[in-house]
Design a protein around this nucleic acid. Structure first.
Lengths: 189, 189
DNA sequence: GTCTATAAGATGATAGAC
DNA sequence: GTCTATCATCTTATAGAC
């Protein structure tokens, strides 16, 4: 993160997360990184190209967190708990990157959007699959599996709208809370 | 909606919801309303002033929906179910206005933000109160009332990120789904 | 790779005719 | 109340010196 490219990326995460892609200027990013506006174009094709690099890396990190959590458990209940816990914790601990991942899709070019959309679908599929298996084993009772999967992910996604580091809830507390709520959503009545 | 002010407001809802406040130009709003860019300034002090009018009206409508649903029921279970049902349905049926309400707070001036923040807190308070009463009566078992209230509202709020009219789920179906999930979140274990 | 300077165009808002 | 024309400024991105 000491190279120029990394400094620009770190500056862009702050700027995009705080002000949004369209309200952020290339001058703002460059000056946060201690460089001139022209330097940005040595390391990135365009302002959108820089956004895409951040969004793609963020999507891959989020997908990895969910996949790893799922792989650590065999039992659907434990697996779902771990997946929502870690997905929530990641969103809180990386709330600025997560804000870019979740809220700046519309600023991507069609090609770049298509790539991150694949990663998004992979995350949703992983949650649907654990719900399906829990229902099959009788551990869960879920009438609408795709809709309930979407709702569980919404909890973590929506946290980036209001979360601020150092607030009244730690990432761990939020992760415990939302993982517990997800289990309640799936548990047999 | 046939007067010029109403046409500008309707055009701005579409433009802000589709492209975001900062990516929307006054020329875009005016041309969607069939007027010249200058006409916007006859009816609104600024682009932000137009945003505030939409955001304030949307917040008041959302607050009204929750308050009315709460007032229709005495039992905490029925009241919570109605509140989340109607709040969800409103977000789906007015998804463009709701997108402005939920995602364009950062574009408001400090004074304007302070006003809509009061309406937001009123909505949160109403949900917290029904949870507190349900717990007191033994109908609910909720360890973290403020956090759970936030999670219930997150379901409806986050729907405006992905919802499109004419999709696979109707506003009523989503409202039923999320109201049911909210009851599961609060029900005794 | 970084800078200064600037091109080329878009932007929010206003002036003044009708 | 609407228009055309325009101001002053800001924007992304590039050119060319070092």
């Amino acid at each position: 993160m000491d190279d120029a490219r990394g400094r620009l990326a770190a500056a862009a995460v702050e700027a995009f997360a705080d002000n949004g892609f369209h309200a952020t200027t290339t001058r703002d990013i460059a000056s946060r990184a201690g460089m001139s506006p022209a330097a940005l174009y040595v390391h990135h094709r365009s302002k959108e190209g820089l956004l895409f690099a951040l969004s793609r890396d963020g999507h891959l990190a989020a997908l990895d967190v969910v996949t790893e959590a799922a792989a650590r458990h065999d039992d659907p209940t434990a697996r779902l708990q771990a997946m929502i816990h870690d997905f929530t914790q990641w969103h809180a601990e990386h709330s600025k990157t997560a804000r870019i991942v979740q809220y700046e899709l519309a600023a991507l070019t069609p090609d770049h959007l298509a790539e991150v959309a694949r990663h998004r679908r992979a995350i949703e599929r992983t949650v649907r699959e654990v719900l399906e298996e829990g229902v099959a084993r009788g551990e869960f009772e879920v009438a609408d599996v795709p809709g309930t999967a979407l709702a569980m992910l919404s909890l973590a996604v929506d946290l980036v709208r209001w979360y601020e580091p150092g607030g009244s809830r730690s990432p761990q507390q939020l992760a415990d809370l939302y993982a517990g709520l997800a289990l309640r959503m799936a548990r047999p009545l």
